[in-house]
Amino acid sequence: MFSLYTDAATQPESGLSAGGILLIHDHQQTQEKVALTATNNHTAEFEIATIALTRLRDQLGAAAGETTVLFHTDSQIVSQSLAKHYAKHYQAEVDRLLSVQSAFQLVLTEWVPEKQNQGAHTLANQALHAREADVK
């Protein structure tokens, strides 16, 4: 089983976004910081979740079909949209994420408070600060 934590950070004034991915498997942690194309936080949350699951799927190859993923997000819209398979303003993002999830045997999505998602949160903020520094 894989435990996957994602978070996004967006600077509203500049529209810059970045994400953090924390993957835990067999007591080993993998951390990644990602620049995102999204210009608002909700879209960024969907984007980082899709990127994280796509990278895990690609890494596992055919074994993804036998893999269970515990996906943790502090984004209520991502969590609720996945549960309902619907989001009024983000349906394309929901559909992309559900499509990627279908490669796995099972993806269990759990909403967690921000304080329980500090690893991914910190990575997202570090990546955003790096992007802002590059622009200045």
Rank of each mutant, 00 (worst) to 15 (best):
H85W: 04
Q76D: 12
E93H: 08
W111T: 09
V100H: 05
S79R: 01
E93Q: 13
L98M: 10
F104E: 02
V112W: 10
L106M: 14
S102W: 06
I77Q: 02
F104Q: 04
H89M: 06
K84A: 13
W111Q: 14
W111V: 08
Q76R: 13
K88M: 11
L98G: 01
K84H: 09
L108H: 14
A92R: 13
F104G: 02
H89I: 05
F104W: 12
H85K: 13
H72L: 12
A103F: 13
Y90W: 08
K88P: 02
E110N: 14
I77Y: 02
H72M: 11
R96S: 11
A92G: 08
Q105A: 15
Q80R: 14
E93T: 05
K84N: 11
S99T: 14
Q101F: 12
A92F: 08
S99M: 15
V100A: 10
H85I: 01
Q80F: 10
K88D: 10
H85R: 11
L82F: 01
Q76T: 10
Q76Y: 09
H89C: 06
V94I: 06
A83E: 07
T73A: 11
L108Q: 14
Q105C: 12
L106P: 05
Q80I: 07
Q76P: 01
H85E: 09
Y90V: 03
V112P: 05
H85P: 00
V94L: 04
T73F: 03
V100F: 10
A103V: 11
V94H: 01
A87L: 09
S75T: 05
S75D: 03
L106K: 15
K88G: 04
V107N: 02
K88E: 12
L108P: 06
E93P: 01
V100D: 05
A103D: 10
L98K: 05
H85S: 10
L82P: 00
E93K: 05
L106H: 15
D74W: 00
L82M: 12
F104D: 02
Y86M: 08
R96M: 11
A83P: 00
T109G: 06
D95V: 07
L106Y: 14
V100C: 11
L98Q: 04
A87R: 07
I77D: 00
Y90C: 07
Q91H: 08
L97F: 07
E110F: 15
Q101L: 12
A92I: 09
S75Q: 04
L106I: 14
K84R: 14
A103P: 06
E93I: 04
Y86A: 06
V94T: 04
Q76L: 07
R96I: 05
I77C: 00
T73L: 04
V78F: 00
S79G: 08
A103R: 07
V78I: 03
H89T: 09
V100Q: 06
Q105P: 07
V107T: 08
S81K: 01
Y90T: 02
L97V: 11
W111N: 10
T73S: 10
V100T: 09
Y86F: 13
Q101H: 15
L97Y: 06
T109I: 14
T73K: 04
H89E: 10
H89L: 11
S75M: 03
Y90N: 07
L106N: 15
I77F: 03
W111E: 12
L108T: 15
I77E: 00
D74Y: 02
Q80C: 05
